[in-house]
């Protein structure tokens, strides 16, 4: 039982990170129907920005995560403006190939500048080093931190999407871009804003992962990026609650397969789930299916 609870706790931490990344995938997909492969690279950049802020500028966790979020926002918007905007009327496959290209450019470009070796985040100080024991469970402050930061960001996101003008514009554009444009919504700035929010969340996830696992490298985004995308598909791509649900589900699958099964097959199980979901219910757990109009 104790081990089980410990596993639940671990899944919540990993699931939070997947959920944060999945939100960016799902929002971008919802608005321009693109699997933004570059999103995982932004997450990696977030981790590096946090690392540099803490190591070279001696900043604490909170300033570092804020800087990472701000810079990732800018990077995300730039990617959209430079690489995706010229392709607004191209085929979806052309944009997808571009996204793969951008992601490789960032990852291997980063590898060229910072080298491929793994770097360690600086050790935490002060209250961030504490651990608590609850029965047989051990809870680290980092785990609490991940959960709290995730919840705070999700509440802010929910507030922005539900109540603000730009949030409503986002929902309108994802429903029907042409209709939204006719209603006077500035589609381009709405798309930029979506990339901005998604990238900020990815940046935060990057710093949280750095703090939690303590090691980062230029290709760290590839696998978690794919898994976060699986999470978004699982919950129903385009749906914000779906991404959160999917994130925690994938986190749990991963932790439990590793804990009770064979840790080597952890990733294979996640991809098998992806293929099953795509075949059985491609619209995802919370999604509704639609058909092409003839």
């Amino acid at each position: 039982m104790g081990q089980f609870l410990q596993q639940v706790l671990n899944s919540i931490s990993i699931g939070s990170i997947y959920a944060l990344i999945a939100l960016g995938y799902t929002m971008v997909y919802g608005i321009i129907r693109l699997i933004n492969f570059a999103h995982a690279s932004v997450y990696m950049l977030g981790a590096y920005i946090g690392y540099f802020a803490m190591t070279y500028f001696g900043l604490g966790f909170f300033p570092a995560i804020l800087i990472a979020m701000v810079l990732c926002t800018i990077i995300g918007v730039l990617i959209e403006k430079i690489a995706y905007k010229p392709l607004r009327n191209a085929t979806r496959i052309a944009v997808l190939i571009t996204a793969i290209g951008v992601s490789m450019l960032i990852e291997y470009g980063m590898m060229f500048f910072v080298k491929a070796n793994v770097r360690s985040y600086p050790p935490m100080t002060g209250f961030l080093t504490k651990t608590f024991t609850l029965g047989s469970m051990t809870i680290t402050t980092q785990q609490i931190l991940i959960l709290v930061v995730t919840i705070v960001l999700m509440v802010i996101l929910q507030f922005v999407v539900r109540t603000t003008r730009i949030g409503k514009a986002m929902r309108a554009v994802s429903q029907d871009r042409d209709a939204a444009e006719l209603m006077g919504i500035d589609v381009n700035s709405t798309i930029s804003f979506t990339f901005a929010i998604g990238s900020a969340l990815a940046g935060a996830a990057g710093v949280l992962v750095g703090v939690y696992y303590n090691s980062i490298n230029p290709l760290m985004g590839m696998l978690p990026g794919l898994k976060a995308f699986v999470a978004a598909v699982f919950g129903g791509i385009g749906l914000i609650p779906g991404a959160v649900l999917g994130g925690y589900f994938i986190g749990a699958v991963e932790v439990f397969v590793a804990g009770y099964g064979n840790s080597m097959y952890r990733d294979a199980v996640v991809f098998a789930i992806l293929i099953l979901v795509l075949i059985i219910k491609p619209a995802g757990l919370l999604g509704k299916s639609t058909r092409e109009k003839v």
């Binding site: 690489a83 010229p86 392709l87 191209a90 052309a94 944009v95 190939i97 571009t98 793969i100 290209g101 951008v102 992601s103 490789m104 450019l105 990852e107 291997y108 470009g109 590898m111 060229f112 491929a116």
Partner: peptide
């Protein structure tokens, strides 16, 4: 090798655009 991948990446994006 990193530059090779960077080149591939740039090639992809530029061709698509």
């Amino acid at each position: 090798p990193e530059l090779r991948m960077v080149f591939y990446a740039v090639a992809l994006v530029v061709i698509m655009i």
